[in-house]
């Protein structure tokens, strides 16, 4: 009852940003591990990195960047009152998210097929640095994939809200926050991509 009476969009965005900081730090723990392992097992780490499929990684980067674009356009569209365009863009974002996950699935399954997964027989025979690389790779991309799912669910909900008229030209903070979340997912991938796929 009192909840909607005191609407404060800037406050809502601030809350979202603060939440994003804690998401950033969540991945931060993994980046600490990455940096340390890279410095202690440099060679083996890089050797393992070369086994990842950089073409698929690049395609996924492009997919995610584009999904961020459509999400950003959706926000501008709602602000301009063009809900139809916003909906089309959000559907686009969701489709690209799905595409990202499918590519991820292909990548993972080919690696798992070769026994390269935590606890896998092939991985156990690799040098320590390579084991560390693959373990980190699975955790980081796994956690990121989970965030893609959550972000997708959030955007899906917003699509529903737009269609019901709950999100519109003069009340769009929900869309704004969901889009912020989606951009964070993209932002983190921007760092994961070179660190894992382009290691030399």
């Amino acid at each position: 009852m009192s909840v909607d009476a005191h609407r404060d969009d800037t406050g809502a965005r601030m809350g979202m940003w603060l939440f994003l900081f804690s998401e950033l730090l969540l991945f931060g723990g993994l980046f600490v591990l990455y940096a340390v392992t890279l410095s202690t097992h440099g060679e083996a780490f890089a050797a393992a990195g070369r086994e990842l499929n950089w073409v698929l990684g690049t395609i996924n980067t492009l997919v995610l960047l584009t999904s961020s674009l459509t999400a950003a356009i959706a926000l501008s569209a709602v602000q301009k009152g063009n809900s139809a365009l916003a909906l089309r863009c959000l559907w686009g974002t969701l489709a690209l998210a799905l595409c990202f996950l499918v590519i991820k699935y292909v990548e993972w399954s080919s690696k798992i097929h070769h026994g390269l997964y935590p606890g896998g027989a092939q991985l156990a025979e690799r040098p320590e640095g390579q084991m560390a690389f693959f373990n980190l790779y699975y955790v980081t991309t796994g956690l990121h994939g989970l965030h893609v799912l959550i972000g997708g669910a959030l955007l899906g909900w917003v699509v529903l809200k737009i269609r019901q008229g709950g999100v519109h030209r003069s009340n769009f903070v929900l869309l704004e926050n969901s889009v912020l979340y989606w951009h964070l997912v993209d932002l983190i991938w921007i760092f994961i991509f070179p660190l894992y796929y382009l290691m030399l």
Binding site: L33, P118, P127, M131, N135
Partner: peptide, 17 residues
């Protein structure tokens, strides 16, 4: 649960981390 081993020295990890 998965035998990940990011802190296991036998798997390239480091308990001090």
């Amino acid at each position: 649960s998965l035998g990940l081993g990011l802190f296991d020295p036998g798997k390239g990890g480091d308990p001090l981390l």
